[in-house]
């Protein structure tokens, strides 16, 4: 469990970082908090020759209000996020989700950008090199098999980030920077679920910040996490739900789920979903059922697909009941 050798860069600007990333394409990794990457490097499943450390990039960890929008620098730590008055007052669901990550030390180290980009997890993948020598490499490690879903033609590692569902439910956007310029995309377009990559980050592209639209008046949200132990664990299922009042008669409901596939899933209510006049018992049950049906988990890490679906139903119901009561 020791790191292999690498060259370490500490760029001062984002463009410098992108440039380095471009120069060492395919051989470089970007490090922010390091809580995910360093473990993978110790396991030998990620072996960068060049490590581009973003910690010294100016202004990348700030949390600022720009007009009505809140801009969270990718390097803001989860502790910063959960303790920020701006976040706590305007987006408590995000503070809740940051607080749900692992434990204090990891929240002090881990960043919002890193948590969004968290590598999907699997017991056959995140293991030391000697452990992995006992079997042929899986897709994730350059092989041609998925031990989780045998016979499948893709990897089914599980996305387990806690903050992503909150951000999805809040309708966040991410600003991405590359040597060719930058783009800002809705976070649901940032995630992809093809098994090999879980984000749309292009080579030499970096996640610079997260932008949250103004909550307006009357937005409520909550994040509920189900895990084996009360701390440290990744979610078995995590559900974020945000209800936003758009007018006196109409509200918009967004629900996002983590732990059910290779990327977080946005569960959108059907067009006929009457979210206008508060959540009734029937609506809550129906939405829980919709969410349960939309997720398609595979058997994973001692949890069966049916149980995971069950949990999605329970958590969606609990989240909505909480919002209905709020």
């Amino acid at each position: 469990m020791r790191l292999k050798k690498f060259e370490h860069f500490e760029p001062r600007t984002l463009s410098e970082a992108c440039q380095l990333l471009k120069e060492h394409a395919g051989k470089a990794a970007v490090i922010a908090g390091g809580t995910d990457l360093v473990v993978r490097m110790k396991y030998g499943v990620t072996t960068p020759e060049y490590l581009i450390n973003l910690k010294k990039v100016e202004g990348l960890s700030s949390i600022n209000l720009v007009g009505e929008n809140l801009h969270l620098g990718a390097l803001a730590t989860l502790t910063q996020v959960r303790c920020s008055d701006l976040v706590r007052e305007r987006y408590p669901v995000l503070a809740e989700s940051a607080l749900a990550v692992s434990a204090a030390q990891l929240q002090n180290m881990g960043t919002i950008g890193g948590n969004i980009c968290l590598e999907p997890r699997c017991w056959y993948f995140q293991q030391g090199s000697s452990w992995r020598q006992a079997r042929a490499d899986c897709f994730k490690n350059g092989g041609a098999v998925c031990y989780m879903a045998k016979g499948s033609t893709r990897c089914y590692a599980l996305y387990c980030g806690d903050t992503a569902p909150a951000l999805l439910a809040l309708g966040a956007k991410v600003r991405l920077v590359s040597p060719c310029g930058e783009r800002t995309v809705p976070i649901e377009e940032f995630f992809v679920d093809n098994g090999m990559r879980h984000t749309d980050l292009q080579p030499a592209e970096l996640l610079a910040e997260v932008i949250l639209p103004g909550p307006g008046a009357g937005q409520h949200g909550t994040y509920l996490k189900y895990r084996k132990r009360g701390a440290l664990d990744f979610p078995i299922v995590g559900v974020a739900a945000v209800i936003t009042k758009e007018s006196t008669a109409a509200s918009r409901l967004r629900i996002a789920v983590t732990g059910v596939g290779s990327s977080p899933l946005l569960v959108v209510p059907p067009a006929d979903f009457p979210a206008g006049s508060g959540l009734t018992h029937e609506m809550i049950n129906r939405m829980a059922e919709i969410a349960r049906k939309q997720v398609k988990p595979v058997s994973h890490m001692e949890v069966s697909p049916s149980y995971r679906k069950e949990l999605v139903g329970v958590l969606v119901r609990d989240a909505l009941e909480k919002l209905a009561g709020a």
């Binding site: 017991w123 132990r229 664990d233």
Partner: peptide, 27 residues
Amino acid sequence: IYEHCVEENGQNLTPNLTAYGLPTVYD
């Protein structure tokens, strides 16, 4: 309640304290 070595063909799939589930203060 928490602990269990999940194994497959003699290989422990849970050889770290997180996967294995050693109880925390909350458990």
